[in-house]
Design a protein around this nucleic acid. Structure first.
Lengths: 144, 144
DNA sequence: CCTGCACCTTCCCACAATGGGAAGGTCAAC
DNA sequence: GTTGACCTTCCCATTGTGGGAAGGTGCAGG
């Protein structure tokens, strides 16, 4: 199967499939005589696994770990569960932060007339130094 | 005031202050005879504005817009409110997505023994093709 | 006066994960 | 044969941030 078919069947773009291979997340694909990559149903299954874990917001590094655990038939399920729970905790933390930010934003928006008048409590408030407590983090974003 | 002091007073790193200036988000800072950037209390206020809007998850592009609205004393407050509400809607969308993902993850984790046994419903499930419906988006992340 | 240290300057590199696109080879259908 | 849909590799851009090098400055203590 060509990369295009594999991409279509998994929803992972051809570009990304090549990229995943280049960074070692996936093993080097088999090649046809013409140099085209050749994918088996097995390979497609792996790509689907990657796709799904990515959709669940795991970083490529975490995906790599999950792939390793997946292929290691003897690893204790505890390891997998721990990874999932760490990820859940991370999502929870970020959601708490977002909730706090939204609360602030809603309050700001509420007090703004939002009409032709130029006075705007939103901007007035943004200019005040007392911070919104949210800081650093980034990384890991749920693909929407 | 040197860039270090300005950074300390605003919580914006010196690196970022220079970067914001380089991309035109901030006007070129005044310079001392020795070439050092020189910041006034006014400048510090602007940096605090930027810091706060960043903390609320606005992109640098949105920050630029807010800065422009801020300095335009005659703009209708409607414009500002619209921007804030768009941002709120965006956050709401992302939170919905995250909630869906967390629900899936919690279900997966729940069914996993998480002990010495090697069978793991999490991995089994990830290997199944039916997607988690979450896709694309990225950009905009609340700084935690 | 010299030395050291803390600060400033600019410049380049890296990151995560993805898309865009150029330049060129291949294959199948017509 | 030519056309068009593939495939290949390479390089570049994105967003926002940090790291670090190489060099200038300014002040304090000896």
């Amino acid at each position: 199967m060509n990369i295009g078919q594999a991409s279509e069947q998994t929803g992972v773009s051809a570009k990304m499939i090549r990229y995943y291979e280049s960074i070692g997340l996936l093993p080097s694909a088999a090649r046809r005589a013409n140099g085209y990559r050749d994918y088996s149903d097995q390979d497609v299954a792996v790509l689907q696994f990657v796709r799904r874990t990515r959709d669940l917001g795991f970083s490529l590094e975490e995906v790599a770990t999950l792939l390793a655990l997946w292929s290691d038939k003897k690893r204790p399920s505890r390891q997998v569960k721990r990874l999932a729970e760490t990820h859940i905790a991370d999502l929870e933390r970020r959601m708490r932060e977002m909730r706090a930010v939204m609360k602030t934003l809603r309050q700001l928006a509420q007090h703004c007339h939002g009409d032709e008048r130029s006075d705007c409590p939103i901007l007035d408030d943004l200019a005040k130094p007392r911070a919104a407590s949210a800081k650093k983090a980034r990384r890991h974003q749920v693909r929407s």
